[in-house]
């Protein structure tokens, strides 16, 4: 019998960490206290010296991980192909950077890495023999704004289907299942000058079209082809930026899960705002979890809090309270649809 398990991505606790409310060991202890069984790391975030951390740093991480009792589920890695201002790294250079991040992930105890959206399929394929040799799986993030309709994402998936390696897969971010535009984003942009009529129009267009990406982006990634009914309301420079940001959420039919579940290694349980009634403002978790159970999904969903980004300047970020509420919701619905 399949059993979905829960994890917390330390992305969620970025503000607590940066502001000194939690150190690395404290973050792991906190994650365990939410009831999660696993943890997702961003080695660039909390492992100093990545991709070449000292043995002492690795020992500190492993000791804290062991003490927490958490399973190391996934490490989120990046390829710094923009390391030079005047050029993008070539494929062999990117392969070397990717290998370094696979190595550090392995040293930290992970056998799954999340490749950030827009990672090159050519770079991934060239690195695959190395990943296979050290027993690590590379899974591309399917993220709203750059998901299945995106040019590079589609090319990566095509590469994955052709390669047919157990060491390639997908990480789907629940941000592709937003049934309504997150109001924490709207409220943040209002705090920096968003015209209220633009906010209302985005909500209206999102509801009428499924999302704004499919209206603004001509069938590809993030887009800025704003219709006149929207642009005629623009009064502030923030209005265009907000409208562009609205294409970073998608309302994708759950049928994409049926099609891709065989390749899915992990999910990011994206959330923007947990409500007092235990639901998420934009994403219908029970509906998604029921579908995953019907499909026999047997791995993790990791809480990934995005509301930190939309907290007004100098206001406190309640990342810890929000993730506790999110884990409680996941626990309450973990067996829905079974």
């Amino acid at each position: 019998m399949s059993q979905i398990k829960t994890a917390v991505s330390l992305y969620t606790l970025q503000d607590s960490y940066a502001r000194g409310r939690l150190d690395l060991a404290g973050a792991l202890e906190f994650v365990a206290s939410t009831g999660a069984q696993g943890v997702e790391l961003i080695s660039d975030q909390m492992i100093k010296g990545t991709p070449f951390p000292s043995d002492e740093m690795v020992t500190t991480w492993r000791a804290a991980l062991e003490k927490s009792g958490l399973a190391p589920v996934c490490n989120d890695i990046f390829i710094n192909s923009t390391i030079y201002r005047n050029r993008t790294l070539r494929v062999p250079e990117q392969v070397e950077l990717l290998k370094r991040d696979l190595d550090v992930s392995k040293r930290l105890g992970f056998d799954l890495v999340r490749l950030v959206s827009d990672t090159s399929p050519e770079v991934t394929l060239a690195t695959l023999p190395y990943a296979e040799s050290i027993g690590i799986t590379m899974a591309l993030e399917i993220h709203a704004g750059m998901s299945f309709q995106g040019t590079l994402t589609a090319a990566w998936i095509e590469m994955m289907r052709k390669a047919q390696s157990e060491h390639l897969g997908l990480v789907i971010d629940f941000g592709i299942f937003c049934e309504r535009h997150p109001r924490v984003s709207t409220n943040y942009f209002k705090s920096i000058g968003l015209t209220p009529a633009v906010a209302d129009k985005i909500d209206e267009l999102y509801a009428a079209n499924g999302d704004t990406l499919r209206l603004f982006a001509n069938g590809s990634d993030h887009g800025m082809n704003f219709p006149p009914e929207l642009t005629r309301l623009f009064r502030s420079p923030v209005d265009g930026e907000f409208s562009f940001f609205s294409t970073g959420y998608e309302s994708t039919p759950l049928d994409v899960l049926d099609e891709h579940i065989g390749y899915v290694r992990h999910f990011h349980g994206k959330f923007y705002e947990m409500l007092p009634d235990g639901t998420e403002y934009s994403i219908d978790y029970p509906r998604i979890i029921a579908r995953l159970n019907q499909l026999g999904y047997d791995a993790y969903i990791a809480s990934e809090y995005e509301g930190n980004r939309f907290t007004a300047v100098d206001q406190p970020v309640d990342d810890q309270g929000q993730v506790r509420a999110h884990q409680a919701m996941l626990a309450a619905h973990l067996n829905d649809g079974k």
């Binding site: 992305y11 970025q14 940066a18 961003i42 660039d44 975030q45 100093k48 990545t50 990046f78 710094n80 923009t82 390391i83 030079y84 201002r85």
Partner: peptide
């Protein structure tokens, strides 16, 4: 200043 991002980067990526 702290970084305007959620992870560490090589210094050359300060634009």
């Amino acid at each position: 200043t702290l970084i305007t991002y959620y992870r560490g980067i090589p210094l050359s990526m300060v634009h």
